[in-house]
Amino acid sequence: MKSKILYVFILLISYSCSVNKYSNVPVHDEIDLSLKSFTEIKKEEIDKKSKDITLGYFWGIGENIYPTFEKHTFEIPKSYQRNENSFILKVDYFFTKDDQTKFKLYEWNENEKMEVPGSMFTEKFSEIKKYITEKLGKPYLEVYEDLEKSKEETVRDDIKWQNQNLNAYLFRFRGKGGFDQIRLAIYRD
C-alpha cells in the first residue's frame, strides 16, 4: 500500500513538473524598449543563455515595418532565440558599424514541443498591447481583421504607436488552419 501511495505521489510530482516546464513569460521580462548599444544587448542575450541563430548574411526589413530602413547602413543582423517557454521567442537586432542598435524585431511562434492553443496567442497579443500602451501611450492605429469573414487563409491585426522617443508596431498573423504568429518591431527615427 505504501509503495502505491509513493508511486502515485512521484507520478503527481513528475506531472506537475512537466506541466510547469513551459510557461507564459510576462512581457516585461521579454521586451526591452531601450535601444542600447549592440555590445550591451549581446552581453544581455548571452547572460539569458539565448541561442545565437544568426543567418550569417544580410537580410532586410520592409518599409511598411521600418519606414527609415533604407537610410541606414547596417551590419549583418544578429538573431537570438530565447529559452523555451510556451512560445518560441526570436529577437532580431539591426545595428550600425558604430554599434548603435536602430531596430529590434521580436517574434513569438508556437512551441512545437507542446500544444499552444490560439487563446494563448490572443492573451499574449493583449498582454503585449497593454504593456506597450502603458509605456508609449495610446496607439495611433489599430486594425483587426475578421478571420471568419475573410476570403484569405491568413489575416493580420496591426497596432502602431509613436511618441517622441520610440515607435512600435505590433502585428499578429492568424490563419484558418490554426497558424498564429506575433511580431513586435521597435525603432527610433
Rank of each mutant, 00 (worst) to 15 (best):
M1V: 09
M1T: 08
S3V: 13
L11N: 10
I13S: 09
S14F: 14
Y15V: 15
S16W: 10
C17F: 15
N20Y: 12
K21M: 09
Y22N: 12
Y22P: 00
N24I: 09
V25L: 12
V27W: 02
E30P: 01
D32T: 04
L33G: 02
L33Y: 03
S34W: 01
E40N: 14
K42C: 02
K42F: 11
K43G: 03
E44L: 08
E45Y: 13
I46S: 14
K51E: 13
I53Q: 04
T54Q: 07
T54I: 05
G56C: 07
F58L: 05
G62W: 03
Y66A: 11
P67T: 06
T68S: 12
T68A: 08
E70T: 11
H72W: 14
H72Q: 12
F74P: 01
I76Y: 05
K78P: 00
S79V: 10
Q81G: 07
S86Y: 12
F87R: 10
F94E: 00
F95Y: 14
F95N: 08
F95K: 09
K97N: 09
K97R: 14
D98I: 03
D99S: 10
Q100G: 00
T101A: 06
L105A: 12
Y106E: 02
Y106A: 01
W108S: 05
W108Y: 09
N109R: 15
E110F: 03
N111D: 03
E112Q: 15
V116I: 10
V116W: 08
P117A: 09
G118K: 14
M120P: 00
E123R: 14
K124A: 06
K124I: 03
F125G: 06
K130W: 03
K130N: 14
K130Q: 13
E134K: 13
K135H: 12
K135W: 01
K135G: 04
K135D: 01
K138W: 00
P139F: 08
Y140E: 02
E142F: 04
E142H: 07
E142L: 08
E145W: 02
L147V: 05
E148Y: 02
E152N: 15
E153I: 10
E153D: 14
R156N: 12
R156I: 11
D157H: 11
D158M: 04
N163F: 01
N165G: 11
N165A: 13
L166K: 11
L166R: 10
N167H: 08
A168G: 04
R174D: 01
K176H: 08
G178H: 05
D180R: 15
D180L: 11
Q181P: 00
R183H: 10
A185K: 04
A185Y: 03
D189I: 01
